[in-house]
């Protein structure tokens, strides 16, 4: 079945949108409330294996222990270590905004001090030469009046020297 080059047929061009109202659930809800009201990043700890999750988890993924006990939550960060990163030099369409990504855009996978599980967030530094793995970074949190209780209450992570 060899294909011949043919004249293009008719396209149907539509942009389809669906509204969603996602729940954050008990644990993330509490995480975002703390972030909004007190500007503190919390991790929750598994009572069985002791791992500290940031982002928090409802249940430990290894031993299925409930980690919802609020008294076991510990503040982590805002300083942390960059585990790895990527750096977008071409723009992409974002599903979160429906708009094109503003480049350059660097995203780091960050292990906050005190946590055992990684967090993914934007880096302030966009000069590729200056981003080094295992460099120290710190979360920049919005002023209280601007915080809305979502992940963007953390503006980005800035590079720090210690």
């Amino acid at each position: 079945m060899k294909e011949k080059v043919q004249e293009e047929l008719i396209y149907i061009n539509k942009t389809m949108k669906i509204p969603y109202k996602w729940r954050t659930g008990e644990v993330w809800g509490e995480f975002f409330r703390e972030l909004k009201e007190n500007g503190i990043i919390y991790a929750n700890q598994c009572p069985t294996c002791g791992r500290a999750f940031c982002l928090p988890k409802d249940v430990c993924t290894r031993d299925h222990t409930r980690c919802t006990d609020r008294s076991k939550w510990i503040p982590v960060g805002p300083k942390g270590t960059l585990v790895t990163y990527f750096m977008a030099e071409q723009s992409f369409l974002l599903p979160t905004t429906g708009e094109m990504l503003k480049i350059p855009f660097a995203v780091g996978i960050i292990l906050l001090d005190g946590a055992t599980v990684i967090l993914q967030h934007q880096l302030e530094e966009t000069d590729e030469e200056k981003i080094k793995i295992f460099m120290r970074v710190e979360a920049v949190i919005k002023p209280k009046a601007e915080r809305k209780g979502n992940i963007f209450d953390i503006v980005h992570f800035k590079t720090i020297t210690e």
Binding site: R23, G25, E26, V27, D58
Partner: peptide
């Protein structure tokens, strides 16, 4: 079930 994430 507004208080529960799908995972819950």
């Amino acid at each position: 079930k507004p208080y529960q994430h799908l995972m819950d």
